[in-house]
Amino acid sequence: MKITQLSVFLENKKGRLYGAAQVLGEAGIDIKALTIAESEEFGVLRMVVDKPQEGLKALKEKGFVASITDIVAVEVGDHPGGLADVLKIFNDHDINLEYMYAFVEKNADNAIVVFRFDDPDKAIAVLSKNNIRVLGKKEIESL
């Protein structure tokens, strides 16, 4: 149950983040979660959106460099140690985590965190075995 992340290349220049957000807004794309990773001169905006393929198309049409990647969205207990419990599972099973970020919205009482793995399928199998709920595309769209 992988979900799709939309990533955009941004130079660290005034107005570029706004530009990307505006393109998505005009295309009627709803941003559910986002994070920006930066180097000295450029950044990568990573987002979970309701319609990633349409978002990709809209951004490319406006000349942005963008791509989509498989990521995994996981329910994490919204209490102290909730995230640590999940990270421990990755650690115990030698699962290589590239990066992660959290949703603003909650699913009932649980927080939602997205993870980028080099092997998402293996990660999903391990999570399921350990009774951690992995969210599907439909659930993300309806948040």
Binding site: S7, F9, S39, V44, V65, T69
Partner: peptide, 15 residues
């Protein structure tokens, strides 16, 4: 100029 074909969501790849 960066092209689609070598864009990655990972900063370290781009660096």
């Amino acid at each position: 100029e960066l092209k689609d074909s070598f864009f990655s969501d990972e900063i370290k790849y781009l660096q």
